[in-house]
Nucleic acid binder design. Structure first.
Lengths: 161, 161
DNA sequence: AGTGAAACGACCGTAGA
DNA sequence: TCTACGGTCGTTTCACT
């Protein structure tokens, strides 16, 4: 995704006209909606819609994917961990990047240097992961765990309100 | 999404056979892949794949949607806010639910009662939102702000590793 | 960047095991 | 819950603007 693109790339709101935004909104509700149906509702031919969608995807503005629910798939425990780092934050971030248990990782300014979201099958797995993989890192000075009790809201349609 | 389903629902890993999991994995990479192409690679007819996908979506195991990049759309400022609440946490959560600026909202156990992710166009908008909409709530005792410096990892394919 | 048309392939409903 | 099949609709390619 574009989050990870070099910061020199400049795909901004200004590049997108009303039709592209309308296309995005339709696909945010149903990622498999046919191009011709979208074309009818936004006033473009099917080919034009397809071309725009390709460009939006290639430029990293959006992706069309299946988003799955961890609970339904047996991953019942989630937590956010605030991490305080000594030294190079990016180094720690890079090290954490590969873990399957981590599905969200942000460098922050504040009383934590990193926020790490963890998804696990069980409490046991979660605690083990935090102790053995996070807290055992030398550069990790401190961690604070926030167990998820209930996910109240989650949206993926940033930017188009 | 299924996160928001009544907690009595029990769609678990055990309900999904290898073929359904394989279908999910394909759609996690390309949400528009044709049912017949998926059928070829997992060993099912087009109709069977279609039926399974419908069931997976209807039961809340997944959804197929466009996921957009806030940066590309001009929403350059993100932050996580830890919120400490006095009294009924759900009441505060409900109140926050409708804000467009909030794209992620979790009730947590730990030194915060809520974690709130905020997406905004500018620092100014973000600060105003935190002060005027979050900190002004009576039941909100304390907040702590974590400004996002860089999003290192974000994945949506929970559960299928 | 866009349209339109023709060939092709995907999708949907239904029937049957 | 699967396969099979026919009608319909969507997608692809290409020539043109």
């Amino acid at each position: 995704m574009a989050h990870l693109m070099p910061s020199g790339s400049n795909h901004r709101l200004g590049n997108l006209d009303e039709k592209s935004k309308a296309i995005i909104v339709e696909l945010q509700h149903d990622g498999r909606k046919s191009y011709s149906a979208i074309g009818k509702s936004v006033g473009l031919s099917e080919a034009a819609v397809r071309q725009r969608v390709s460009r939006l995807i290639e430029s990293g503005v959006m992706e069309i994917v299946a988003v799955t629910d961890p609970l339904s798939l047996g991953f019942a425990r989630q937590a956010m961990v605030g991490v305080k780092v000594r030294g190079d934050i990016s180094k720690v971030a890079d090290r954490l990047h590969g873990y399957d248990e981590i599905d969200y990782l942000v460098v922050t300014a504040g009383s934590f240097d990193l926020l790490v979201e963890i998804v696990c099958e069980s409490d046991r797995h979660l605690i083990e992961f935090v102790n053995q993989e996070l807290r055992s890192i030398d550069a990790v000075v401190d961690t604070e765990l926030f167990m998820y009790l209930s996910l109240e809201k989650q949206k993926y349609n940033w930017g188009t309100r």
